[in-house]
Amino acid sequence: MPDETNLPPRPRPTWLPHMRPWVQAAFAVLWLWPIRALQGLPGCVFHCYGCPWASFACPIGLMANFSAALPHPGLATAPLLLAGVLLLAGGLVGSLVCGWMCPFGYLQDWLGRLPIPKIAIPNWLGHTRYVVLVGVVIALPFILGLKGQSFEDQPVTICKYCPAGAVEASLPAAGKSLAIQQGWMKGPPLPPGQSWFPSTRKTVLVVALVAGSVVMFRPWCKIFCPLGGLLSLFNRISIFHLRFRREACYACNTCRSRCAMGVEVERHVNVTNCIRCTECTTCGALYPSLGGEEPKGSK
């Protein structure tokens, strides 16, 4: 701890972290507002479009669908709308989307609040997100599309193994299934030749997500989320970013100890494993910025 007699007065702590759960709740309402006019638009968060209340469409599901359609001359098209939404969100705020807007992250935040000791996830596992993005979301549907399989017919897709789909689409379907006495996750009767999703896989995904989120902080976001990986690439250039005010730092360890994502805050904070929850801004030495000069009176 440095000698505080040589340092300026401590900065005023920021209120941002206290606002976050309310903003997350407000965005959850927006994503779950079933406005039909919005259903043709991609969203910028990880939210399954199979959810009966989904407003916008899941950008990762769309990316995989467009990739599967690419080898077919009649269907190949450049996904301008999807690319535009992701570039716009990334350029403006980067992975602030993950920390403040994503309903799936919000769900994991709630599960992580249970007072159970958490296992730290190594930062290097964050690279898995790019393997999922390039391998499972883009390359695999394209390769299987080359073999003539449509996305829905492909045996392995991101949607079939997506925990967001299991929670947001399959659980409501399971409720409906139980209500009409068809059994757990069996769904309503389908035409001959079509099968309902296997209940075992979805049940395992739901259980794994809940168990993982209780003992680890945001395991999906940190290890697997392809959308979070993509948006976090913009953290180094996005208009919204975090800055360090060195003359206000007392090395009190608040920033590092409040970071649940394991960011090495003492070195850099605008990095790919940050979800911009802004918990590190609590003491005021790190502060959110939209560029330009530091606000007057902040020193």
Partner: peptide
């Protein structure tokens, strides 16, 4: 320790291209 100051132009360019797309 880097203050991580930067200008907004790169992010603004990405946002403008995104809006056009």
């Amino acid at each position: 320790r880097s203050e991580e100051r930067r200008l907004i132009w790169a992010g603004l360019a990405a946002a403008v291209i995104g809006t056009l797309l």
